[in-house]
Design a protein around this nucleic acid. Structure first.
Lengths: 222, 222
DNA sequence: AGTGCAATCCCTGAAAACAGGGATGTAAAA
DNA sequence: TTTTACATCCCTGTTTTCAGGGATTGCACT
């Protein structure tokens, strides 16, 4: 009846991939053609013009290139796959971010099994698909939309792009280094690192170094 | 030939459970009888004397009661199952801790699929089983054993028990509160919180508040 | 009755973090 | 070409953290 759907799965944990494959194999219309354990594996796979898949099932938290980077890379391509994000947790700001980047679906790992097949079938039809818990949060956000302060800065703070240097400093902060140590490691003056710290505090809207560390962990900067 | 082995699987992500089941189903000697998504589900299941399983495959990071609590609960029981830990990451100190608590195996999620069946068969025979990456780390640790400073304090820092108050302070630190704010919230003097902070730094062997936050996240204090 | 531990409070002094400016060179983009 | 963004550096001053002591109360266990 319908043409077979080919899927590529990317997750850093093999066991999760095996779970997804096991679920997908229960449906005869869909076939997992290959999988990747890192972000660079994904991009390389799709860069090779011999390889194609209709749908990419992608975990955000994967090594080397994270989910955001992979999506940014793939969206430039001509034969780009539909992308379904499978995430451990469910932060509405990340969902929004991924939608902006052109993803077609977002489901959480909690109930990925129940949703993955429907999600794949939906996105190849050009529809968008979200798991029930994500839908709930989106609705909640929509209802509370009146609380948005003013209309000129609609971008999520995830759009707050950190510079390479800032990310480097942030990484060293999470490794318990203080300003003099970071300055030494990067061969710049203490003043410079202090400036970077101040930018980070401002951009990420946190109060102190602990806030920076928590942010870095939550959004997988490190 | 050999009697069938019954297994209970616990992980907060359904898709991981599905992956483990898919792998285990390839072997006729083993059967997954049930699964749990939270720590309390696991303990309640085993508390019910109708339910029994030879092996528990357990993720450390599960809600309500974490892996440590589950193991502590189960080891008091008479018909206790062999426990195989399946962990996202591979910290040798956690492995040691789990071994002390009486677990029989430890494998990482990276290559759980390749090891899970062998691990289950090994532990029901009374053996211990570790995945290759864990083995590597254990060997490394053993080789470097000479670096242990003195023989009177062999306990891992995970045994370093934090008091209730210290955990409370630690939690507030991870919420970006500074000392005056914490003192105010807990209705004690700033000096008191400073004392707690110093104890935390010492006990957890970290350099600063960021180190405390990273510890809290890593070991799920918060 | 004595020991140990948890929780509370205080002191001093040094180091680091934070707030808020300003300033410069350079490279890329408009 | 002008503007913008990035990375670098400096100054002033305040607040917070950290290091190192010491001390008291109360409670639980032996």
């Amino acid at each position: 009846m319908s043409k077979k759907i080919y899927v590529h799965v990317a997750d850093d944990h093999k066991i999760v991939i095996e779970g997804i494959i096991a679920v997908i194999n229960t449906d005869d219309d869909i076939e997992v053609v290959d999988y990747s354990l890192t972000g660079t594996q994904v991009t390389k796979w799709f860069d090779n013009r011999k390889n194609k898949a209709d749908v990419l099932v992608l975990d955000i938290n994967i090594p080397e290139l994270d989910g955001f980077e992979v999506v940014k890379h793939l969206r430039k391509k001509v034969n780009k796959p539909k992308i379904i994000i499978v995430s451990s947790y469910n932060d509405i700001r990340i969902v929004e971010e991924m939608l902006k980047l052109g993803c077609s679906g977002y489901i959480t790992k909690n109930n990925a099994g129940a949703h993955i097949i429907n999600a794949i079938k939906a996105v190849v039809q050009g529809e968008q698909y979200f798991s029930s818990d994500v839908q709930k949060d989106m609705l909640q956000k929509y209802v509370n939309k009146k609380e948005v302060p003013h209309g000129d800065a609609p971008e999520s703070f995830l759009m707050e792009t950190l510079t390479d240097r800032e990310i480097e400093v942030l990484r060293l902060i999470t490794q318990e280094h203080n300003t003099p140590e970071i300055a030494d490691k990067l061969n710049v003056s203490v003043s410079t690192i202090e400036t970077h710290r101040k930018s980070l505090l401002k951009k990420l809207k946190v109060k102190n170094a602990v806030g920076l560390a928590m942010y870095a962990i939550k959004y997988k900067i490190i």
